[in-house]
Design a protein around this nucleic acid. Sequence first.
DNA 1: GCCCAGGTATAAA
DNA 2: TTTATACATGGG
Length: 289
Amino acid sequence: MQIMENPEGVLVTGLELFRLEDTLDCGQCFRFRRDGDGWRGVAGNRPLFLRETPEGVLFSCTREEFEAFWRGYFDLDRDYAALRDGYRNLSAQGKDLSSLRECALYAPGIRVLRQDAFEALISFIISQNNNVGRIQGIVARLCRRFGEPCGADPLEPDGVAYAFPVPEALAGRTEDDLALLRAGWRAGYILDAARKVASGEIDLPAIAALPLPEARAQLQTIRGVGPKVAECVLLYGMARMEAFPLDVWMKRAMKQLFPGCTPADFGDCAGIAQQYIFHYCRRHPSLVR
DNA sequence: GCCCAGGTATAAA
DNA sequence: TTTATACATGGG
């Protein structure tokens, strides 16, 4: 990876296996949209525009911002090629994981984003029994109404980029206050999560460091957080790459593609394998119907 | 109208 | 412990 400054921002070259569409349009984050030939969005309180050029990926930020945040956010220091090859050789106790190579062909440029834990928690509470378009709409309204302005966003009606709300900005609200989100019954879940985090009853950084079973159990004390949401928070919001979100699709895909295998068979980077499988399923709906 | 969307809480078997 | 149902929105 080479990093060069230019008048538009920071140009990153020499990156293998990094494609913006694979990474930003796959249901792991809900705040990035296409903008012309690139993508625009906000992570936490940091707005960003980025696009692919023949030379590399161009980030519209300073070198300091890239180094301090975006480099980690996009997981750019992980060697995904080595990981993919590692999976090829990882045949735990005779378990056949060879289908994974085929899966990885359908989203070779995916990176597992390292999002803020609270943002991931609220986002995936909203995601339950919901579709990506509507999730994005609810999250956008949440940020416009309860997030702090944090820069410019030409795609917003008022041209302002809004940060993801901090827990304290939500904890004191009522379900009526959240009615404008049109989040339905998830509004109560959002409030419970925000209140538990704001009060300290839920300590997200502490949970992130816990063994997986305890971390899952603590997350699931939040109303509206079940096995699936907890797993998404661990994988996308706590950089716990052993986490493996199992939804209806994934359960069926596992039976078809990896009979007899469990998430644990994919090792300490199971979550990345899960991403490859998820993308494969999206391209092969007949497999999981 | 009907069905579905990367689920979860709740009540019943 | 497992299975059924309601839950609010909105798009196809």
